[in-house]
Design a protein around this nucleic acid. Structure first.
Lengths: 189, 189
DNA sequence: CCCCCCATGTAACATGTTACATGATTGA
DNA sequence: TCAATCATGTAACATGTTACATGGGGGG
């Protein structure tokens, strides 16, 4: 078994399988009808991705013949797969994550519920909030250093980024409150 | 000449070349040091992308021997390339854009300054704001319909999306003010 | 003298996109 | 009977990733 090298789509699938075993078709439905659709979706991506997860020992499939329809291939996570997911969501947040893929971070967050305890979730949110704050500082510096140009589009685009990040940081701080109880017991020592 | 089929990275490069002619190396610097780095960056992506833009008649290059350093290959946009960019940024905003790639929309916006007039920019922002509002409505509906689960992560992730989109819509409405003058003359008829 | 910056590129590889192919069942 | 939904897949193709290769110039 090779060192599992999984793409974002792979993680998204694995996370969904951990919530509940599903067929490739069911996964496609999820990607088509929810905001997760970002991690597209076409059969040409899903089915090969499932095959890879199975090859790498992170998921396993069994055939369901019980319906009159075409037999389904139902995938679920393996023990290894769950451990792998847990490891993934528990990684410390790097600056790079904040800069390039907040989406990835949110994907990790949305799967944490059944994988880690509130303390880990709390730490994640806290790291996210402070990571964003740091980066917002940098962006504001860029804004300051930006020469005043005639078309204001560049400056405005930067401001858009800043306000988006701010909103995300606010959300994180709000969300922290929902996981504070367990974390506080920890801090009171 | 084939129908130009350009990726997001291609558009990002083309837009930067339109601002100012550059070498592949200079482009890499931009991607490494600004938030545009999202549209990565490695030589293995940039140089082939430049070659493609040239093949498709959207950019042209000439060699700059004037420095003592290794001769540079400086790329700039062609007339066709500029028209193509303008066409791209001027497209009406589809729901799909709002759902999947706000980032793309912001890329388009940031290049509009030297390509279209304020009226087009205004229309773009207006479409963006209302598109987002519609989608936020849908997301809120999803939130309502969501069963109350023990780990609140799913619900919170959705709320994060909602507040991010709200921030973006607010930004758009604010930005509209900067382009209102020309647009108002239009509306007063 | 050594390392970093300038500057361009290629090769192997994995992944994702688009389009096609197949076929049974269910509801209008 | 016709369309939609369930259900899985493949083939060709373009793109991006990682790592490697090359080499001169300038500063400490």
């Amino acid at each position: 078994m090779k060192k599992p090298n999984v793409t974002t789509l792979g993680y998204a699938i694995l996370g969904l399988l951990h919530v509940e075993p599903r067929t490739g078709y069911a996964l496609r439905k999820v990607f088509e009808t929810t905001p997760m659709g970002h991690y597209s979706s076409s059969p040409g991506a899903i089915y090969p991705a499932l095959k890879r997860l199975e090859e790498r020992g992170l998921a396993s499939s069994k055939i369901d013949d019980s319906t009159k329809l075409r037999p389904k291939q139902v995938y679920s996570t393996t023990r290894t797969g769950v451990d792998f997911l847990r490891y993934w969501v528990s990684q410390p947040i790097e600056k790079q994550n904040v800069v390039h893929d907040l989406g990835d971070l949110m994907l990790r967050f949305s799967f944490m519920g059944t994988l880690v305890n509130d303390r880990v979730t709390y730490r994640f949110l806290s790291q996210m909030a402070s990571g964003i704050n740091l980066y917002v500082g940098e962006l504001e510096q860029m804004l300051q250093d930006m020469p005043v140009t005639v078309p204001p589009h560049g400056r405005l685009a930067l401001q858009s980024g800043i306000s988006t990040y701010r909103a995300q940081a606010n959300w994180a701080r709000q969300a922290m409150r929902e996981f504070a109880s367990e974390a506080e017991r920890d801090a009171e020592k």
